[in-house]
C-alpha cells in the first residue's frame, strides 16, 4: 500500500551508500591499517586492531544501509542509530588506538594542536558540548525548531559522533600527554555527562504524549504507535548511557580508594634509574 512498514533485518541492511560518510570512514581505516602494518605487534597488539575494525564495521552498517531511510518511520530506530554513533563506535575506536605507541613514536600532537586538544578534552568543555548536543536537539521547542529540523538528518549524526568521541576520550584518556590523569575528574565527568541523556530518556519514557514533532503524526514501523516509539527511544537512550555510567562509577570508586589510602599507605620510593 505504501512504503514497507514491516522491514526485515535484510531490508534494514540493504546497501544505501552515503558518499561523505563512506569517504571519511575509509580514509580513517586506511590511516589505521597503514600504521598497524608498520608497527611492531607488541606495541600495537591485534586486539586493538580488532576493536578498531569493529568500530569501522558498525559505523559502515549504521551509515551505509537502508536503516537511515527507515528512521523516518521509527523514532526508536532513529535513536538506536544515534546512540550507536555516540556510545558504541567512539569507545571501540578509542580503545583501538595504541596510546603508548603513539606517544613513543611521537605521533601524538605537539605544540598548538596539542594545546587545542587539551582544551577540547578538558572535562568541563567536553561535558558542556555533549550536554548542548543532547539538550538542544532533543528539546527543540525551547530553542529553534527550524534549526533542529534542518540539521537533524545531515549534521546531527556527525555531532553525535563528535560528542561521543569527546566524552569517551575524556573517560578512556587516549592522549595522556594532553589529558589530566586523575580518576576523580574522569569519574565525575562520566557521571555528569550521562545525566543529560538519562534525563531526556526519562522524559520520553514517562511522557503521556508524543513530544518530538517529526514523529507526532508519523506512521511507525512494525505496527507501533508514535508514543510506543517514544517510550522505546527512552529505553534505548537509557540503556546506551549505562556502560559510560558504570565506568564512571568504577573510576569514582578508584578515586575514593586512592583518597582513603592517601593518609594511611606509605609510598615506597623507587630508586632513580
Amino acid at each position: 500500500m505504501t512504503p514497507n512498514l514491516s522491514p526485515t533485518l535484510l531490508d534494514l541492511l540493504a546497501p544505501r551508500p552515503d558518499a561523505l560518510w563512506l569517504i571519511g570512514i575509509l580514509a580513517l581505516s586506511g590511516w589505521y591499517a597503514l600504521g598497524f602494518v608498520h608497527a611492531p605487534r607488541r606495541e600495537w597488539p591485534i586486539w586493538r586492531a580488532v576493536l578498531f575494525g569493529l568500530a569501522v564495521v558498525v559505523a559502515l552498517v549504521i551509515t551505509q544501509t537502508a536503516v537511515t531511510d527507515f528512521t523516518l518511520n521509527s523514532m526508536t530506530l532513529y535513536m538506536i542509530r544515534l546512540m550507536v554513533l555516540a556510545e558504541l563506535v567512539p569507545p571501540l575506536a578509542i580503545l583501538g588506538l595504541p596510546a603508548a605507541y603513539f606517544a613513543q613514536e611521537r605521533l601524538v600532537p605537539h605544540g598548538r594542536p596539542a594545546q587545542a586538544l587539551s582544551w577540547l578534552l578538558d572535562p568541563w568543555v567536553a561535558l558542556a558540548l555533549w550536554a548542548a548536543i543532547i539538550v538542544f536537539w532533543n528539546i527543540p521547542a525551547s530553542f529553534s525548531a527550524s534549526l533542529v529540523s534542518n540539521t537533524a538528518s545531515g549534521l546531527l549524526p556527525l555531532l553525535y559522533v563528535f560528542g561521543g568521541l569527546l566524552s569517551w576520550a575524556v573517560v578512556l584518556r587516549p592522549l595522556p600527554s594532553v589529558q589530566g590523569k586523575g580518576y576523580g575528574n574522569r569519574g565525575w565527568f562520566g557521571l555528569l555527562s550521562a545525566l543529560p541523556m538519562m534525563s531526556v530518556g526519562a522524559v520520553w519514557l514517562y511522557s503521556p504524549r508524543v513530544l518530538y514533532a517529526p514523529y507526532v503524526g508519523a506512521l511507525c514501523l512494525w505496527n507501533t504507535t508514535p508514543l510506543q516509539n517514544q517510550v522505546n527511544s527512552g529505553y534505548v537512550m537509557m540503556i546506551a548511557g549505562l556502560p559510560g555510567m558504570a565506568l564512571a562509577i568504577g573510576q569514582l570508586m578508584l578515586w575514593l580508594i586512592a583518597l582513603a589510602d592517601s593518609g594511611t599507605v606509605t609510598e615506597v620510593e623507587e630508586p632513580d634509574a
Binding site: A103, S118, W124, V125, A128, L129, S177, Q179
Partner: peptide, 28 residues
C-alpha cells in the same frame, strides 16, 4: 616525555566550556 598537563582552575575551564558551546551553536 608523557608529561601530564597541570590542572586548570575550574573557572577558566568553565569559561572555555561556555565559549565552546557558543561556538558549536554558532557553527550549526
Amino acid at each position: 616525555e608523557t608529561k601530564v598537563p597541570a590542572p586548570r582552575p575550574w573557572y577558566v575551564s568553565a569559561l572555555v566550556a561556555a565559549l565552546a558551546v557558543l561556538l558549536l551553536l554558532g557553527g550549526v
